[in-house]
């Protein structure tokens, strides 16, 4: 649910008392027309607040926390769980890690890029191609989707559709965190709205979580990811073939 324009104006006045809409737009990179339209409609997107707070060197999570629907984001952050951290590592990075671990001379410690070229490159920043779904799966106790649906009134199939499309509305992301009892900004990281640093995740937390996994855990996780990816790709290819057949005969 986007933020009410009134509350946004009040917040903006506190952040940049003298700036005009044009100034704010220029500083934040939000298109002036977009910003004006959101103000006229009375609904300001969370992404707008994030962009503006970055422009004025504020923490976006704290900024969102000053709005009523997100009041609890202002509280001190709960650190991310290991599963959450690992869920935000791209599948390709997991595979790199497996390859690096099985290289013949990878035995000396968890290579941090010092020896030869065999060490994996640094992890790509979240979000990755299946961030949202992997995050929800990582914190799901089996009933999570139902609880989120009950708390927000969003139909389960619409919620699932967002996860599959690797999208998650900020409101739903936070509601999911609340329902799972994990750090409130984690979902915003998975949805790509804020960075892991902005959410208060320690800089090397994901790498440390990855290094802490046994070979078995890592391989099993990568296997799950590959299986899911394979399924998605096959479905995509099936749709693709079907469309091609339609073009061939009716296009």
């Amino acid at each position: 649910m986007p933020l009410p324009a009134k509350a946004f104006q009040r917040w903006l006045h506190g952040v940049a008392p003298d700036a005009s809409v044009a100034d704010v737009a220029r500083a934040s990179g939000v298109k002036r027309t977009t910003l004006a339209q959101q103000l006229v409609r009375g609904k300001v997107a969370e992404a707008t607040v994030v962009a503006i707070s970055r422009a004025f060197n504020m923490n976006p999570v704290a900024a969102l926390g000053s709005f009523e629907p997100y009041w609890d984001l202002g509280k001190p952050p709960i650190p991310p769980t290991l599963q959450e951290l690992v869920s935000q590592i791209a599948t390709a990075d997991l595979l790199h890690a497996i390859i690096a671990r099985t290289e013949p001379d990878a035995g000396t410690g968890n290579g941090t890029g010092t020896d030869k070229g065999t060490a994996p490159p640094g992890l790509g920043p979240p979000p990755h191609a299946t961030s949202v779904k992997n995050w929800v799966d990582a914190i799901d106790d089996g009933e999570l989707r139902h609880r989120v649906s009950a708390a927000t009134g969003v139909a389960p199939q619409n919620y699932s559709a967002q996860l599959t499309a690797n999208r998650l509305a900020p409101e739903l992301a936070v509601a999911t965190s609340r329902a799972a009892g994990v750090g409130l900004a984690s979902g915003l990281v998975a949805a790509g709205l804020v960075t892991e640093a902005e959410a208060g995740w320690p800089p090397d937390a994901r790498q440390a979580a990855l290094d802490g996994m046994t070979d078995g855990e890592l391989t099993a996780l990568a296997g799950e990811r590959l299986q899911a990816l394979g399924k998605a790709l096959r479905r995509q290819e099936h749709d693709q073939r079907q469309t091609e057949t339609i073009w061939e005969n009716l296009g």
């Binding site: 995509q236 290819e237 693709q240 469309t243 091609e244 339609i246 073009w247 009716l250 296009g251």
Partner: peptide
Amino acid sequence: LVLVWMARVKAANRGGHGTSST
């Protein structure tokens, strides 16, 4: 029939002869 044909025209305009990007 015309709409299905239009769908192909649209897909082709987006690039790659009716093969929507994967």
